[in-house]
């Protein structure tokens, strides 16, 4: 079953075309990674999917509905969740308040459970801004999970996480897959290769290739354009 589909999705910034007529489909329950060099249009693409960035042209379909003109908050209510590339939490509120706002109820047991998934349950009453950077990112991921979304969009979630936190992140995401569809922008190729069922490579705003991790690593175009020259 198709969860997300974009048709001809396009975004211009002034004279620059950041995303160029992208057709993209996402099947239910999988983990789909979006990779590509900096400036390939990944964040702009998911920005248009989530409604943060208005599209210049094209359509977005979610769960069989055309949501192209919808504001972001309505898309979220329909079952999307989005974590920002630059951590966006409520720094002056407690972890509990953060999770409560995400899950939409003040159920403390549920909030504790959501935090336990990222090993932050014992800090539930701390102020979020006092957490380390890595923990703040984990909190934001926990907020995304707590929304119980059908589609979870993660924009570079492992940036700034330690090795052990990344391992925990991988476990968490695998445990969600099945019910939740995951769209992941990621630079860390180890994470991509170990998590993704399917990978889409974007280059200069267009889809360069789509396939399983094995197919993508074997793809000559991808190697030339991206993997071979990836230094970081």
């Amino acid at each position: 079953m198709t969860v997300l589909e974009t048709k001809n999705l396009t975004r211009h910034f002034g004279g620059l075309t950041a995303v160029d007529a992208v057709d993209f489909t996402l099947q239910k329950g999988g983990i789909h990674a979006l990779i590509g060099p900096n400036g390939a249009g990944k964040s702009t693409f998911v920005g248009m999917v989530s409604g943060r960035i208005p599209a210049s042209a094209g359509e977005v379909w979610f769960n069989g509905r055309d949501i192209s003109g919808w504001p972001a908050h309505k898309r979220m209510r329909l079952g999307m969740a989005y974590t920002f590339q630059i951590t966006a939490i409520y720094a002056r509120l407690s972890l509990f308040e953060n999770i409560a706002l995400a899950q939409g109820t003040r159920d403390r047991a549920a909030a504790t459970k959501a935090l336990a998934r990222v090993a932050l349950a014992d800090r539930i009453d701390q102020v979020a801004g006092d957490l380390s950077y890595g923990h703040q990112r984990l909190l934001e991921i926990a907020m995304g999970v707590a929304q119980a979304p059908r589609l979870l969009i993660l924009d570079e979630p492992t940036q700034g996480l330690s090795e052990s936190e990344i391992a925990g992140f991988n476990t968490l995401i695998r445990s969600l897959a099945g019910d939740t569809t995951i769209l992941l922008i990621e630079h860390n190729m180890d994470v991509v290769m170990s998590l993704a069922d399917e990978i889409t490579v974007l280059q200069r705003g267009a889809v360069l290739a789509t396939g399983t991790p094995d197919e993508i690593s074997a793809n000559r175009h991808v190697q030339d354009a991206y993997l071979g020259r990836e230094t970081c």
Binding site: S50, M76, A91, E97, L101, R106
Partner: peptide, 24 residues
């Protein structure tokens, strides 16, 4: 009430609140 909590959320981080599905 929830309405009030969302007001505080708007104060603290408007964009995050919008992306949690609240009509800011």
């Amino acid at each position: 009430q929830r309405f009030g909590h969302v007001l505080i959320a708007v104060r603290e981080n408007e964009e995050r609140t919008q992306m949690l599905g609240y009509d800011v």
